[in-house]
Design a protein around this nucleic acid. Structure first.
Lengths: 70, 70
DNA sequence: TAATTGCTACCTTTAGTCGGTTGTAATAAC
DNA sequence: GTTATTACAACCGACTAAAGGTAGCAATTA
């Protein structure tokens, strides 16, 4: 039974996919049209991301939203 | 190809599942520990819900988060 | 007419932006 | 083998926009 919060799991998944696609935080931010510092905050689970931004990031990473929540 | 935003699709799904389980907005709100009117706003896509509240509602509906985003 | 939902308005908290600085690690270069 | 140079991510306030959350009443429906 995992103690990891949903935000932590989500952030880890974003980082994993971003790195696997050889993107910097800034590059991903540009693709998703969010601020560069925001990607770092999401990956570190410092922010409680909204549904619209979850969708933006999933599109920027070229994966289905569901992949980010598995 | 659907023009429905992710928030609209999400709200419809919440309502569909809530009704199918014979819950009022208020009952679901109590289960999820959010306010009664908030559930209505989410179902009507008037709010851009955050990940933490998505999780609360999915647990209250007793479904996996993924079910709410399909 | 009782239960449920919608709508409006409001306040508090936090998501999300912005511009900058700092530390690190790798590469090359002299 | 110490010096740029480059790229990256963490961190830092300060700020703005929007989400979270509540209350009251109108409208709807069973």
């Amino acid at each position: 039974m995992s103690k990891k919060t949903i935000s932590i799991k989500f952030g880890e998944k974003v980082r994993e996919l971003r790195v696997s696609k050889n993107l910097s935080q800034e590059q991903l931010a540009d693709l998703a049209n969010v601020h560069r510092t925001y990607i770092g905050m999401v990956e570190r689970a410092e922010k409680n991301i909204t549904l619209v931004n979850i969708e933006k990031i999933s599109k920027a990473l070229n994966v289905n939203i569901i992949e980010l929540l598995k």
